[in-house]
Structure formats: structure tokens, C-alpha cells
């Protein structure tokens, strides 16, 4: 029995994980969601902004980051448009422009936001840190046109925006280490307030910046997206998926405990 457990075919684990995802997906389970402090801080920061303030959102993720970052991007955009906070979208990821532009247009349509007046998507520019530094001096020197090719001078939302001085907050949705770049080049150099929404892989790296105040808030993975959806009272994929995620986590914890018990029993038997 013990040997069978220790040498279990890994495909059985795959089937168990698949079942732990499929069954709750069809059952539509609703577990309680509590809001963590970093998510609450970002929500409060945007909530306290005056109408007609401008924030910048950096969509720094491709399709692989979409499941975690799209729900949080959707929630933050909805909060901004509902509060009449203007949004400038940019990206430093070459595979992000289509995803980001589609998301902004979709949420704007739902919220009644007008392109060019309430939001604009500037698109992608290569250069990473140079783009971050360049926009601190002049956004127009880095992005001459928006994603659709309209000159920045002809876009109403950009009328009074020159550089970071007119931006109240930058929210970086990142599946890589761009948030550290924004903190380094935009917060330290230009004192721009930074918040972040990140994938699970890099959450642990972000906490030191929260503690020092270099990040005003943090949305941590799909759990953070669910929390944000709860805060804006607009349940969507985040809340739906975190419920399913809980079942998979339970299964993984169970398997880890089972594996450890079997490991220690076998060690004792060998002794």
C-alpha cells in the first residue's frame, strides 16, 4: 500500500487536479472572500482621487499572464471609469498591445467612457527603463502617437498632461519584474506614486516595497483580483476562479500531507 502510494502514477494526480477544477466550475460554488490590506490600500487610493484626476496603467503582460492580470485590470479600469478618473494606458511588453487595447475598449464601452476624453491607450514602446525615464521628462517624446496613430497633441485627455507631474498614480499590471523598474525609475527619480497588480510568481518580491511605502497598494494574483472585484461590488472571473482555486489548493495540501506521511513512515520502516 505504502509503496503504491509512493510510486503513484503522476497522471492520477493530473486527473485529480482536473476533477478539482471541473467539478467546482460546474457547481458554481461561492466561498467567502476577505479583502487583504494591500488590495484595500490601492482601492482606497483610487477611491480618494478627485474626479478628472489622471492615472497611468501599464499593462505589462502577455497571454500567459492574462488569467491572473486581466480580471484585476478589468476591476481597476471599471473603478476608474465609474469615478471619472481618466486613464492613460501604456505597455512595455511587445505581446500586450492587442490585449490591453481590447480590454480598455471593452470596459470603456460597459462604463460609458469615451475614447480620447476619458481614456487613451498609447501602445508599446521598446526600451524598458528608457521609456520609464523618458516619460518623466515628456510623455510625447516617447509616444508621439497613440495606439491608433492619432497624434498626442490631438487627443483631449493629453491636453494638460506633459509628464509624471500630472499623473496621480501608476498601476503596473506585471507578469515580470517591471514593477521594480517603475519604482526605481519613476518613483525614486520622479516621485510618481506606484501600485502594482502581479502574478502569483512574483508576489513575494513585492512585499518589501509595500512595507517601505514605495508601493501604495498591491493586487496579489487571482486572489487579489477576486478581492478587488468584491470591493467594487462587481463579481466576475476573479471571484469565480478563486473559488475553484480553493478546491485545488485543498487537494494539493492533502497530497503534500499524504506524501509526507508516507515518506516518514517508509523512513522509519527502513531504519
Amino acid at each position: 500500500m505504502l509503496d503504491k502510494l509512493m510510486n503513484m502514477d503522476r497522471r492520477i494526480v493530473f486527473i485529480l487536479v482536473a476533477l478539482a477544477v471541473i467539478i467546482p466550475t460546474k457547481l458554481r460554488v461561492n466561498l467567502p472572500i476577505s479583502v487583504s490590506e494591500p488590495t484595500q490600500k490601492l482601492y482606497d487610493y483610487i477611491d480618494n482621487l478627485e474626479a478628472d484626476s489622471t492615472i497611468m496603467i501599464a499593462f505589462n503582460y502577455g497571454p500567459a499572464g492574462l488569467p491572473e492580470l486581466h480580471p484585476m485590470g478589468r476591476a481597476v479600469l471599471k473603478q476608474c471609469f465609474d469615478k471619472d478618473v481618466r486613464v492613460i494606458g501604456v505597455t512595455l511588453a511587445p505581446d500586450a498591445p492587442t490585449l490591453a487595447n481590447t480590454l480598455m475598449e471593452e470596459i470603456a464601452q460597459e462604463s460609458g467612457a469615451v475614447a480620447g476624453k476619458d481614456y487613451v491607450f498609447l501602445g508599446y514602446r521598446p526600451g524598458g527603463s528608457l521609456v520609464m525615464l523618458g516619460m518623466g521628462t515628456s510623455i510625447a517624446s516617447v509616444f508621439e502617437n497613440d495606439y491608433n496613430g492619432t497624434a498626442l497633441a490631438e487627443i483631449p485627455i493629453m491636453e494638460n498632461i506633459t509628464n509624471y507631474d500630472q499623473i496621480s498614480l501608476l498601476v503596473d499590471f506585471a507578469s515580470g519584474n517591471t514593477t521594480e523598474g517603475w519604482i526605481n525609475y519613476a518613483n525614486t527619480q520622479y516621485n510618481l506614486q506606484i501600485a502594482s497588480g502581479v502574478t502569483g510568481v512574483i508576489i513575494a518580491q513585492m512585499y518589501p516595497f509595500l512595507q517601505t511605502g514605495q508601493l501604495v497598494g498591491l493586487i496579489a494574483g487571482i486572489a487579489g483580483a477576486a478581492e478587488y472585484e468584491r470591493l467594487i461590488d462587481a463579481p466576475a472571473k476573479g471571484m469565480q476562479w478563486i473559488n475553484i482555486e480553493s478546491f485545488v489548493h485543498l487537494l494539493i495540501v492533502g497530497l503534500v500531507i499524504l506524501g509526507n506521511i508516507a515518506f516518514f513512515i517508509r523512513n522509519r520502516q527502513e531504519e
Binding site: 487536479v17 482536473a18 477544477v21 471541473i22 466550475t25 460546474k26 500567459a64 492574462l66 488569467p67 491572473e68 502574478t199 502569483g200 510568481v201 508576489i203 513575494a204 518580491q205 496579489a220 494574483g221 487571482i222 486572489a223 472571473k237 469565480q240 476562479w241 475553484i244 482555486e245 485545488v248 489548493h249 494539493i252
Partner: peptide, 26 residues
């Protein structure tokens, strides 16, 4: 403890990818 937290969060991220695909398929 730090590595454990990072690993746990990574698992959460990877499972989210699976959930999104299963959601699409179903």
C-alpha cells in the same frame, strides 16, 4: 519561509492558468 511563500504563490498562479483554460473549454 520566503521560498515557501514564493512557491505557494507560484502554485496559485499556475492553477489560475489551468482554471482559465478549463473555463474556456467548458
Amino acid at each position: 519561509i520566503g521560498f515557501g511563500a514564493a512557491f505557494g504563490n507560484t502554485v496559485m498562479g499556475r492553477v489560475a492558468l489551468l482554471i482559465q483554460r478549463v473555463d474556456f473549454l467548458l
